[in-house]
Amino acid sequence: MPTAGNFSSEIWLAVVTCFAAVFTQNILLSYFLGMCSFVSVSKEVKTAAGLGLAVVVVITATSILNWMAYWWVLVPLGLEFYRFILFIIIIAAFVQLLEMVIDRYSPALYLALGIFLPLITVNCAVLGSVLWMVIRNYSFVVSVGFGLGSGLGWMMAIVAMAGIRQRLDESKIPAGLRGPGITLIIAGIMALAFIGFTGVLQ
């Protein structure tokens, strides 16, 4: 199990990791994770924000669950290779459960988030950030920070993209570049801008 230092330094490390996951190592702009829904659902700010929020909740929660499942169950049993199946099952089950709970207790929230939940199980950003967490041997507190940061970073990227695309509606864009093409170019420019954050954290 990843060794944890004392509590306050752990918290500090978690904050730094969270910040890094949003800015310097954005899960979408530097790791290309969650591209499918990023390209297809970034047409409108409101929808993008809804999906983004759902992703934040799911990544943070599944980071916690998967961390426990990996370090407390798989590693002691020597079944690390089984993680892919276990992670995807946990993610799918959590999403299903969340959908049911929201539907039951908050119809308003369900209208806002519920429709995006099924999209999230297959969002690679979720599985990807969980796999990074395991590869990098993050301790529990740091994993939570990393999960939260990954989610927030993804949300920020998709909301920003949606804002830009709404403005593009009236621009003249070459036919072949319309839709996904221009989205990717903008994403490239955003990624370029985010490189500027590298070095903020030492």
């Binding site: 702009l29 530097s30 790791y31 290309f32 070459p174 036919a175 072949g176 570049l177 996904p180 093409g181 221009i182 990717l184 170019i185 994403a187 490239g188 420019i189 990624a191 370029l192 490189i195």
Partner: peptide, 16 residues
């Protein structure tokens, strides 16, 4: 990473 986005966009543009 930005290079990946740009090149993919160019490929898409060409094929489309």
């Amino acid at each position: 990473p930005p290079g990946g986005f740009f090149v993919l966009a160019m490929v898409l543009w060409l094929c489309r």
